[in-house]
Amino acid sequence: MLSSIRPGTVVLSRTFKQSLASYRGVTAVSLYSTNNSAQKSDSTKETTSTEKGKSVAPEDVRTKRRELSSSKYESASYQLPKWKEALGEFVISTLNLDMDKVRAGPIAGSYYYSICKEQGLQYEDEPLSKTAKFFYEDLKLPKTFSQWYQITILHEWMLFVRMRAMPFKYGKNYQQKLVDRTFADIEKRLYDEMNVHSGRITDQYLKDFNSQLRGAVFAYDEGFFSGDAALASAIWRNLFGGKKNIDMVHLEAMVRYVRAQLYVLSKLSDREFAMGEFKFVPPDESVEILTPEQEKSLKEKVVAKYEAVDANPNALPSEKSKFSYTN
């Protein structure tokens, strides 16, 4: 059925076949590469940006908040000292901490936010990433902060859809952590990158972003449940800013993109998703439907993997989870 899409247009013809399998079992690695060159150029720009005060010009970027935090604990290269690790495991086992709840912070609040954030991240003086090229060059979206926000919340909403299918208590917690991190990061980006130094104005922006998030989640939910036409209208109103001269081919490409991501998410078990074993399929690749045999063999692999973890008597307390790996 997919082959009936005629590759006559820019966006759709860029796709090549890639099976779903390679997107499962991807672990969180090296997402936060620190950009040293960005910091070097800052010192020269410092004076001009402070003079200008509250101007919202992207060229006045003081500190690029590419990575989520400056904390060493959140960098990919950092290795926890053995004694700290042992102490942590001791605390978890003696206090009998619910790791499924604790894990929401590092997985949803850090890893999942980072993959949503990087999709549309762009700086004026830097070449665009592959996914950013799709959004800003192929779809011709404007390169603005609020556009970045729209791209980010579209991806966050897709994760929300999967989080709702987790046990209620945990799913809610994952959603909460993701939203908390989003707004904490936006507040810092507004200060550092957009040079908004007034707390009152920042609050106004945050409130506005909050209502955008609520509206978008509602509209996407409606579209997800009722059909592609409603989903396309929701994408048009939110992601494309309701512009009149929309190219329907772009709209179709986006509907397909969203549905494909949701399909991948639906094939992940709770355990895999909760452990952060998901990343978005790049827009220049397409997702093929799994045959029943493929699905069965993938499921068996997952079950074998987590059965081994659960049966291992030496497994660390922090590795344990009660999430189902069979659904």
């Binding site: 997919l2 046990p167 592609d228 949701l262 659904n327």
Partner: peptide
Amino acid sequence: AIMSDKYKNYYAVGDKLYKPAGN
């Protein structure tokens, strides 16, 4: 393609997401 629910049907997610376990 949009109006015929092409992608909703092709990338069918089933009750796992339409009737999410949490709610």
